[in-house]
Design a protein around this nucleic acid. Structure first.
Lengths: 330, 330
DNA sequence: GCCGCAATTGACAACGTGAGACAATTCGAC
DNA sequence: GTCGAATTGTCTCACGTTGTCAATTGCGGC
């Protein structure tokens, strides 16, 4: 059993309170006394008991982080890192759980966070989506998702801006016949990115409304299945072949690499490919390396933790920009 | 602020003690009283204050889980899931941290776990490796890694057996000219798998000692860089071409797919490929799908948490078998 | 040596829970 | 009406920490 302040006080032949003062950096302690006590603390390896502090102060300093469905999609790790870093910088404890929404893991995490009297809870989704989180006594921050009724603050990637940015880059580099193989329409990012792509193209003088294709068969949640084979076969059979394929996500891009190879086209030579995610390690392992818009997950994690600590207006929505990561596919 | 037992008692017009009895499942409470109190508990959303419980019981019920370097390799998620599931099944709280060994995140996690008086700590590495963890007052369980001096119990994948198993399958299917593109020699799994491969081949009557090649350039820790291009060019230039390439890991297999395509060989037709990891989503996205040995991460996580809760002998080492996941590359 | 004031140190209570000791009450069976 | 068992209640303590407030020490100035 680890030592207590009482034990430290006993050894230092001083009172409990003085030890407490040293630990809490109270300036009104004699320098000599302080160093004597600090020596004993170091010697014993004493750490203040967090449970007792929570009791005494009536606040937990704990922020919960629920990472929903990480198992199926590892992007959330950067969300977690961002939040964790801020928590430490700001002297908070973050309690992290990997859960599956609606499954027992979710209920277990909730009750554990309640038992620890968490001050706020960050709920992180694996992809930009709408969720339905009832208001509770504990404030929730939605990360990479947003509430149906806008009852909770939300941190989101600015998918519209991401698509606009990469489309601008595409046209700057001289591509004139891009197609966008978009995500399923039941995914929020799909609409936003479609809009960004079309407006970006319009700004460059191209009507791209016919150049967007839904290339995912499966619904959200189910294992991803792509409809790229048929779409690409169609697109690449005519004379007006695309000079660039923009994919809704890196794993789709990986699939597109294979399908293009099957059709006899070389990525980076016969046709360019770009995408969204910068998914490690896929984007770097593809040959040629995949040029892709990285989503601002780390910064989103940081923003969420800051909101969780400072409090936020209920309907606050923060959208963060992404970053273009250049490799050789474009 | 969440309710207390006192508040529950007030509303139920009963005594503190009876509420306490209900919460701690003391049998000597009238069934009717019990359900009345339980109703109020549910209504208030009361959860016993964990801090107070820890104070009172002098035990934290907390097991720490340090996931080292998750950011660079997402396999650990299954380790975490396994451990988390067992913790919940057995009424323990698991505190999870993503850390980088030697970085501030590591020290922060350590002191937070000390502050919460964690009863044991599971230290999980991203790949099978040797580490150097000093003994402390809190028992450590090493997961996917082992201590230099055998000072801590360890849970490991049985890499020798994994390689033996897949080699057996390879020969059962009639392949006779397999090569093994192994991991770097500074990686523990490399030796064990090499041994498994050679002995498996020997059992089938083949001396495979010349058929193992180190195909990773970079040292452990650095971003992976493969030496597959030259090796494959050599191997596939002669007449006695391999009929199967066994890769040390799935991301190497992905690289090998590209390199074989570059050389003009079709995986699954001209040459088979197999591997280790079953890394989601890569193994499923490759075309053809990658047949690979899945590492028993979930079960390893479970075993580690069980050891953490039950205690373990210092030099205990547990090796778990993997599972062959069949797709179409073999 | 003593006063006054500042610097330093100490005594005590309280946070919510759970347990022990034991008293009080209710209920049913006789 | 009594006995005994079942149930409920009262009271007390302890866990480790820190805020409040009181006590003690040190020191300059007389």
């Amino acid at each position: 059993m680890l030592a207590t302040q009482r034990e430290v006080a006993r050894r230092a032949k001083t009172s409990l309170k003085t030890v407490s003062r040293v630990i809490n950096n109270d300036p009104l302690v004699n320098a000599e006394t302080r160093s004597r006590i600090e020596a004993i603390i170091a010697e014993l390896g004493y750490e203040p008991n967090q449970a007792a502090r929570m009791m005494r102060s009536q606040k937990s300093n704990i922020i919960g982080f629920l990472a929903d469905g990480v198992a199926t999609y590892p992007s959330s790790i950067e969300l977690v890192r961002g939040a964790q870093d801020v928590a430490w910088e700001r002297g908070k404890q973050m309690m992290l759980f990997n859960i599956e929404r609606g499954r027992p893991s979710s209920a277990m995490a909730d009750s554990q966070l309640a038992a620890f009297r968490a001050e706020a809870i960050i709920y992180a989704a694996t992809f930009h989506q709408q969720v339905d989180i009832e208001p509770t006594s504990v404030p929730h921050i939605l990360l990479n998702c947003f509430d149906r009724g806008g009852r909770h603050p939300a941190i989101l990637p600015d998918d519209y801006q991401l698509a606009l940015d990469i489309t601008r880059i595409i046209f700057e580099r001289g591509y004139r016949r891009p197609v966008f193989l978009n995500l399923n329409t039941d995914i929020v990012a799909s609409h936003l990115r479609g809009k960004g792509f079309i407006e970006g193209a319009a700004a460059a003088g191209l009507d791209a409304s016919g150049r967007v294709h839904i290339a995912v068969k499966s619904a959200a949640g189910a294992p991803t299945e792509f409809a790229t084979r048929r779409i690409l076969a169609d697109l690449f059979s005519g004379l007006d072949r695309p000079d660039l394929v923009l994919c809704g996500q890196d794993i789709m891009a990986m699939n597109v690499y294979f399908e293009l190879a099957r059709l006899g086209f070389k990525v980076g030579k016969d046709v360019a490919v770009a995408s969204f995610d910068n998914l490690d390690p896929i984007a770097g392992l593809l040959q040629p390396g995949l040029s892709t818009m990285e989503l601002p997950y780390y910064e989103m994690g940081r923003a969420a933790m800051n909101l969780a600590i400072d409090g936020a207006r209920h309907n606050q929505v923060l959208r963060l920009k992404g970053k273009f990561v250049e490799r050789n596919s474009l």
